[in-house]
């Protein structure tokens, strides 16, 4: 009986550990990976970090959502590579946009700004200030357009 109880207690504890991990909200820049800090410094030289939200999943790999005082949001993975840049209504700094994507937008929508860019395993995805979304593959080649 004691053994069974012990096993149950361990099971409960591990379930609690897996679920109970709150996201961490901090303003401490030093908790960001170095690569992420350098990316911010390079692309937003004047910006200050308002807060950083660190999301930890089951496997303890972190996701850093960094919000700047001007409202822009840059997400990094645990290695410090950016995965999303959301500049709300302003243009995403050119350093984040692959050349082919930039070329596509300039050709097809010459007056439009790219306000958001995501980078994932399948490729890139951008959002423009005319409300249109566009998807590109990992090489930056155009795939589709959504509204």
């Amino acid at each position: 009986m004691k053994k069974i109880l012990a096993v149950l207690a361990v099971a409960v504890a591990s379930v609690q550990m897996a679920f109970a991990d709150h996201d961490v909200v901090t303003r401490d820049e030093s908790r960001l990976p170095v690569a992420a800090r350098e990316t911010i410094k390079k692309n937003f030289p004047d910006a200050k970090i308002s807060y950083i939200k660190i999301e930890k999943d089951f496997f303890q790999s972190a996701n850093y959502e960094t919000t700047l005082t001007n409202g822009m949001e840059i997400d990094f993975n645990s290695k410090g590579d950016w995965i999303e840049v959301d500049c709300k209504r302003q243009a995403v700094p050119a350093g984040f946009i692959p050349a082919t994507v930039k070329e596509y937008v300039e050709t097809n929508f010459p007056t439009v700004l790219i306000v958001k860019i995501e980078r994932g395993r399948k490729g890139y995805s951008i959002e423009m200030n005319n409300g249109l979304d566009a998807d590109f593959d990992t090489a930056g080649m155009f795939l589709r357009l959504d509204d």
């Binding site: 909200v25 308002s50 409202g71 709300k88």
Partner: peptide, 21 residues
């Protein structure tokens, strides 16, 4: 309980986003 805290976190994001804006 966790759900309530998650709601608060989302709420915070919206409020802070508005303020920064």
């Amino acid at each position: 309980m966790d759900e309530t805290d998650d709601t608060l976190e989302n709420y915070r994001e919206i409020v802070v986003g508005k303020i920064l804006d």
